[in-house]
Design a binder for these strands. Sequence first.
DNA 1: ACGTGCATGTAAAGCGTTACATGATTAC
DNA 2: GTAATCATGTAACGCTTTACATGCACGT
Lengths: 179, 179
Amino acid sequence: MRNLKYAILGLVCKAPTTGYEISKEFNHRISNFWFANHSQVYPELNRLLDEGAITCETVLQGEKMEKKVYSITPSGKKDFMEWMMTDTELAPIPKDIFRLKSYFANFLDTEDFTYLIDAELKKRMERYTFLKNTFAAYTSEPDIHSKDFGDYIVLEGAVLREEAYIQWLHNCKARLIRK
Amino acid sequence: MRNLKYAILGLVCKAPTTGYEISKEFNHRISNFWFANHSQVYPELNRLLDEGAITCETVLQGEKMEKKVYSITPSGKKDFMEWMMTDTELAPIPKDIFRLKSYFANFLDTEDFTYLIDAELKKRMERYTFLKNTFAAYTSEPDIHSKDFGDYIVLEGAVLREEAYIQWLHNCKARLIRK
DNA sequence: ACGTGCATGTAAAGCGTTACATGATTAC
DNA sequence: GTAATCATGTAACGCTTTACATGCACGT
């Protein structure tokens, strides 16, 4: 499937960038729907270079330190755009350890399960609050063709996702208390 | 982390079962939050057998065909229950190819992105309708300690998850039409 | 001088998917 | 008879994580 390839290609399409910058993105904004370690990014960049999808320019930082700035090639851009326009199969349902435990909830006492839910709620609420605040930083909707549009809609999607998860946890808890 | 181990252990805890049955579960109800192929299940069962977490009894089906029925051991049950009660880190945010594409939406025409959203909506709606119908088959809420309780709450969670995703897709679409 | 961040890689191990491989049983 | 389902495994490949490994630049 080579999804990492296209994630990286998309970032290089936005603007010439380095492996270090790409890794940082994967740990910040993009982490809301994708992730990769630098140990995956650097080899993939070299592979894309071999394939002629990107080019590389070495730039000096200070006296000795070098960084590699990658840019998209016409063939890389074409490949990326074709991937963008291809309607793919529905992604497999993501694995979720908390839901797995919930499936086996009848093995637990009410108190133990309540404790688990509360712990999960706390962590989810933190994530939710952070996302909500980041989203609120947009005072107006970016235009469809602005570079912020993707970031904006994906953030909104992340907020809705976390909201639904928290809603579900509240429902589960209410069900335990009622009985 | 050995999550597959605990998914299997939980199923064996519910009732003695075979690798084939476990694989079927992973392709049906459990697929809403976990998944594994039979090529992962069989080796893991043998590993659990080596570790003494389960025992195996060979049963004849018909004249020649054998099946292996696995049961939990006290040590396996203890291990499983400890895992159940341990509050783990928040799971990494699941990767999502559609969100990845949406992040790069500014590279697409409005029409192309609308087409992608519609295609995704259609598939999501199918999944949602199926889940909703399965959930509706419960005419009353199962008791916390009944074997159906886990299935019930996890189904509800899946319905809420898909609802939030569809809501997001509708928001994205409305945003495109408005402009 | 020291700590944090910039910058780039490799290696090993684990996890997951697809394909290969085989054979029995049951329902039509 | 033949197709679907039952039943169990292995092998190859690819993806992901964790750890190993190195060194520069900059602010205090």
